[in-house]
Design a protein around this nucleic acid. Sequence first.
DNA 1: CATGGATGTTGACGCTGGCAACTTCGTGCC
DNA 2: GGCACGAAGTTGCCAGCGTCAACATCCATG
Lengths: 227, 227
Amino acid sequence: MATRSKRAQAEKPADKPPEKPRYHHGDLRQALVDAAVELITEEGFSALTLREVARRAGVTHAAPYRHFADKEALLEAVSQQGFRAMAHEMRERMARVSGPLEQLSAAGVAYVLFAVRHPPHFRVMFGPHFTRPPKPDAAEEGANAFTLLVNCIEAGQAAGLLRAGESRRLTLTAWSLVHGLASLFVDRQLEEAVQGVEAAEALAVVQTRLLMEGLMRPEPGGNSDSR
Amino acid sequence: MATRSKRAQAEKPADKPPEKPRYHHGDLRQALVDAAVELITEEGFSALTLREVARRAGVTHAAPYRHFADKEALLEAVSQQGFRAMAHEMRERMARVSGPLEQLSAAGVAYVLFAVRHPPHFRVMFGPHFTRPPKPDAAEEGANAFTLLVNCIEAGQAAGLLRAGESRRLTLTAWSLVHGLASLFVDRQLEEAVQGVEAAEALAVVQTRLLMEGLMRPEPGGNSDSR
DNA sequence: CATGGATGTTGACGCTGGCAACTTCGTGCC
DNA sequence: GGCACGAAGTTGCCAGCGTCAACATCCATG
């Protein structure tokens, strides 16, 4: 995972005081993003300080401004990487199963699991930390995960497995369910009931299955009005 | 000799009857909470400053410390009032209908509507702004809304309208759905599709109805495992 | 090997959260 | 009625933060 080395190989023998005063950092931009995520994980959002981030990256307090216009721009980078990683994990898990319903379920579970495993990313992605509107490329990343869900739903409808009707309505149901579950995990509302990633995964599986049954082709018993 | 003068007429139309004869300011504590909510609404979280809050309340920068130990304590008050108001609105809307399913739906719609109408409260209640664990009385307020949902679900099960089984599982489904929908609204993920409180309400109604159908007793056929 | 642009540093400014010492004022007690 | 006590609000201070401007250093390119 080492990026360009050049400076990374500094010490081989193990006796000297650790670090050479390297002037140019190999990949400071990414180091700052990582340090920010780490800092949020360890100390919470209120401790997220551009100066502390710089400190952890081993540079002085103004160095980040060579890579980010301001503190918010750093968070934008965190958010964008988060959206990309989430879409990646969803696609990865979807690729392990086949059939629209299985894939929809896999996407939902991956969505929840991403939040459980990367709470800082999830919070930055959806939290109240931005004052500027999202940049267009970031918005595109964000729409990516949503599109995955829409595609699953529409495939399910085309296969006659899911209720017909406006696909966006069903998609919103599915999205709300997984987003709500993810948010509740991240916001520590379920801590007493569920602990650990495995328990969270099991819960996500159960819930998405329940969702699937709810979204499936309605039973042949005349019931409610619609709309 | 006007007893309480000098300050009362200067600032705001404090037309309330003397609730509690506060010493200097009429009720600075509540004024600070209101100013904080107002400030978050207008300028966002990053602009939430104890000093600006004090400024808006017409006092100096250290006055808030007579009522709140620190900035986080002010947010705790916002959160607690939010939980209380949300539970109140849920009960109010539930009281207008009868029957477990109707009440469950009403509770869910009220949950979403509270978030749509009071985004700052919702964000403080569930957001990443606290470093300390919630105080016990605040946690109790939080558990209140949850209990409302549980009661509806269990009543619905008792009446044979909802699937049997662990009520907590169904409750989590319902909670996730409404919490997710509320979060998506508050986090501006649905802005392009839905605008205005009425549209949000209509969407919440449709979604909770869909939820209801999903949670209702399925056709009698062998299915799921248990935990 | 000179040079220019990118990268990192130093120093400064105004603002913030929080503390301590001081002042003002209402209330309970005599 | 008057007085002392303590709560509510003020003033002043400090370290730390975000941000900018000026300066220093390094690397690639010619």
